[in-house]
Design a protein around this nucleic acid. Sequence first.
DNA 1: ACCCAGGTGGCCC
DNA 2: GGGCCACATGGG
Length: 217
Amino acid sequence: MTDLQKIYSRLFDSFGPQNWWPADTPFEVMIGAILTQQTSWKNVEVAIQNLKDKNLLNVESLSDIPNDELEKEIRKTGFYRQKSKAVKNLVSFLMEEYQGDLDKMCTEDRQELREKLLSVKGIGHETADSILLYACIKPFFVVDAYTRRALKRLELADTDDYEQIRDFFESSLPKETTLYNEFHALWVELGKRHCKIKPLCDNCPLNDMCPHPSKTE
DNA sequence: ACCCAGGTGGCCC
DNA sequence: GGGCCACATGGG
């Protein structure tokens, strides 16, 4: 059993299945992925509900809505001017490349699709991979800040580079979307429980795996 | 009055 | 290829 498989087992046994992404449709996943950038999910839920209440959570409406009106709906998620532009950029991309058809987007070659998503302004590595994994169900491992900090803490990775860490996961684990899905969600759950600082936390399922569990800086 | 949150892009060297 | 920085609201 590899270190990563062991960690996954510990997290799964402690926190249980996370059943991500919390959304009703793949389109909702994509918009949520942008809105949750550097923002707690609680605030994103409000914004998503605002959009749903006004029947704005679809490609056509978000294509037509003026930027300042969209900003109002998503204000609570922070960085709302940037995120509003990112959402508009994404729906423009969807319309131009796939006539607004998400299924069409997801049938494209996975590497090419990733490159295209990354070329959309406002969509970076994590957002692109979140869309690929949770909206298109393609095996890309999503790496977030929690994951990087924990890997470094556990001395399993000596880099901060996103692509290297993603490659580490993808080459160490079976290429299963359900595994990638749960694993990333479990890292986030670990982070939410404040297991990100040294020592990871009280009752953290990974504490005894830390190289220096009682080191005091 | 801090610090952090399921990041990203634009600079600079 | 890194190291800063602005971006913005809400909750502890």
